[in-house]
Amino acid sequence: MAVEVRLPTVLRSQAGGRSTVSVEGSTVGEVLHALVSAHPGMSEQVLNPDGTLHRFVNVYVNDDDVRYLSALDTPVKEGDEVSILPAVAGG
């Protein structure tokens, strides 16, 4: 099923300037892997080489942080919005 993925500004140039793209998948992990397959340039900014979520990236399903759900195994359904957000932090 298709869910909308909201991209951070830093990744939009790799999606033709779009803020959201439609991606197939039934879990957050499937959605993210489908996203980076379609847009390989996003790969290293979203996932680690071992397929886990990059430390400096936050992923939300609608308004919930997937780290407090089931991480990459979190299920998604038609109409959900998966958002990728770079961690904004510093000193």
Partner: peptide, 20 residues
Amino acid sequence: LAHSARVYTLDPLAHLRADR
């Protein structure tokens, strides 16, 4: 979210809502 005088971590939910 860091509640620190030396570092900051911006609330990611606020980031998401601001983006929308």
